[in-house]
């Protein structure tokens, strides 16, 4: 908090503002969840590309090998065996939650950024509630949470059969 800030201080401050949404209301939670889910989805996307690359044989996929069929089958089997792990399944369920939330909440933010679904300017009276977080915005935020929970339950059931 002192005067001059170095790179580490900026990073710590960034993580703190991302990860500590307390006290600032619903929209700050939305901000934090949107950022975390965005980072997680990006990391997953990179990992997914790497994983898929291995399945199809990595860079060698561009070369027609005599044993291409057998090679692909062997790598596919090995990869599936490696990924058949409850930890990866649980991770995919969480990814399902984040993807659903990020999508619906992202559409809400897209609309809000262009001024749609917001309240009108009003003279502030005591106990004023910001019209930026209008009932429409709150409803859409909770809808994105509900959709994400549904995705989480669906994927958890798909992997672990919890509803069976």
């Amino acid at each position: 908090m002192a005067g001059r800030r170095n790179g580490l201080a900026v990073l710590v401050e960034a993580l703190r503002t991302w990860l500590v949404p307390y006290r600032y209301g619903l929209e700050r939670w939305s901000y934090t969840l949107q950022r975390i889910s965005g980072v997680v989805i990006t990391l997953y996307f990179v990992a997914h590309i790497v994983e898929t690359g291995y399945v199809v044989g990595g860079p060698s996929v561009w070369t027609i090998r005599p044993d291409a069929q057998q090679y692909a089958e062997r790598v596919w089997t090995e990869t599936i065996k490696f990924l058949s792990n409850p930890l990866f399944d649980a991770g995919l369920a969480i990814i399902g939650f984040f993807v659903a939330f990020h999508t619906i909440n992202g559409i809400r933010l897209f609309l809000a950024h262009f001024g749609w679904g917001l309240g009108r300017p009003t003279r502030p009276e005591p106990m004023h509630r910001p019209q930026s977080m209008s009932p429409t915005q709150r409803a859409l935020f909770w809808a994105s949470i509900a959709f994400a929970v549904f995705a989480l339950v669906y994927t958890t059931n798909a992997f672990f059969g919890v509803l069976a």
Partner: peptide
């Protein structure tokens, strides 16, 4: 650059609602 965290509007002691102004400006 605004990410619409709305924290500005939550803490304003006069009910100015800067987040609303920013989104309306972007619409303009």
């Amino acid at each position: 650059r605004c990410h619409f965290a709305d924290s500005c509007s939550q803490v304003c002691p006069k009910g100015v609602d800067p987040a609303l102004a920013i989104q309306l400006m972007r619409r303009e």
